[in-house]
């Protein structure tokens, strides 16, 4: 059934969009990531204008992460203190990122910057996570007991001033590296039009050694608020948020996220990370193929302004 989208200004198959929402929602709930890095290319692929695709991401991810957050909250798997700290840094990073984004657009070549950043960022994060989790899986197979956190072994960045105890996560670290990480993630997120969960989740696991079950809930919580802000910023600055498209994606997404969250809870840590790593690598490979192979159609046409 076709439905006409008022902001994107084109008709689209309702069930196609609903299905995409379910698929991305499932992954989002499972891994505690927004899924923006999957949804943006998907939407553009089915013909949604890139500006609308990026902007409409906001409400869709907000809805999915709201459902996900509530599910994790009931299981007491959200570290609110850590979440608020991350959010503060994330908002600052988002603001800086939007400024950089507009500057790059003025200079042209924004598309190139985005594609290469995707490949580098997704590729390196995906590779790191995959290698680490393959090692962990092999170690478990060989019968070794998974190494527990060693007391007393600390990295230099954990000892910076403003040391704070995050009870739920069971960590005692300085807030400076945490806020710094959040700023970086927010910045990258705004430039690439993504939530940034796929950077945040591995970073919290590896750098701050936050337990996996707390990471997902906390990440979803942070993404929820970042995406609410992103929706309002996009709506006011470029009027590209399509409410109809968002609603379709949301309805599909929240259902998918429910099942995803359950599937994620039953997954063992190392397999969970291995899956996430592979997923990120696949998307990175897709982007790399885009810039590394000779395009079948080298030309593209973009309308820049229309007189009505």
């Amino acid at each position: 059934m076709e439905i006409y989208l008022p902001i994107a200004e084109l008709p689209i198959d309702m069930f196609l969009i609903l299905g995409m929402g379910v698929a991305v929602g499932f992954i989002s709930g499972m891994f505690g990531i927004g899924g923006g890095f999957l949804l943006t290319p998907l939407l553009i692929f089915v013909g949604i204008p890139p500006a609308v695709a990026v902007a409409t991401q906001g409400p869709q991810i907000a809805a999915s992460s709201m459902t996900g957050s509530l599910a994790y909250w009931r299981r007491k798997s959200i570290d609110f203190k850590l979440g608020w700290t991350l959010l503060a840094g994330g908002l600052v990073g988002t603001l800086l990122g939007v400024m950089f984004f507009n500057q790059m657009r003025k200079l042209g070549q924004l598309e190139t910057v985005i594609t290469i950043s995707y490949v580098v960022l997704l590729g390196s994060v995906g590779l790191l996570v995959s290698i680490e989790s393959v090692k962990a899986v092999l170690a478990t197979r060989r019968g070794k007991v998974e190494r527990k956190r060693l007391g007393g072994r600390h990295h230099w960045y954990e000892g910076l001033p403003l040391k704070t105890r995050f009870h739920r996560s069971g960590i005692y670290v300085s807030v400076i590296p945490i806020v710094g990480l959040a700023v970086l993630v927010g910045f990258a997120g705004a430039v690439l039009g993504i939530g940034g969960g796929f950077i945040l989740v591995p970073a919290m696991i590896y750098i701050f050694r936050v337990p996996a079950h707390v990471v997902v809930g906390t990440s979803l919580f942070q993404i929820l608020f970042t995406m609410i802000a992103a929706t309002i910023i996009h709506a006011t600055t470029n009027q590209s948020v399509d409410a109809f498209l968002a609603l379709l994606l949301m309805v599909g997404g929240v259902f998918g996220a429910q099942f995803g969250a359950r599937a994620g809870a039953n997954l063992r840590g190392e397999y969970f990370r291995l899956l996430l790593g592979f997923l990120i690598l696949v998307v990175a490979a897709r982007f790399a193929a885009d810039v590394l192979t000779r395009p079948p159609e080298p030309f593209s046409v973009t309308p820049t302004e229309t007189v009505r």
């Binding site: 809805a63 709201m66 459902t67 929820l224 949301m250 929240v254």
Partner: peptide
């Protein structure tokens, strides 16, 4: 923008 964000939160809450 605010209305769209509110709808998103509402849909998410309803689903849960």
């Amino acid at each position: 923008g605010i209305a769209t964000a509110l709808i998103a939160v509402l849909v998410g809450w309803l689903a849960s």
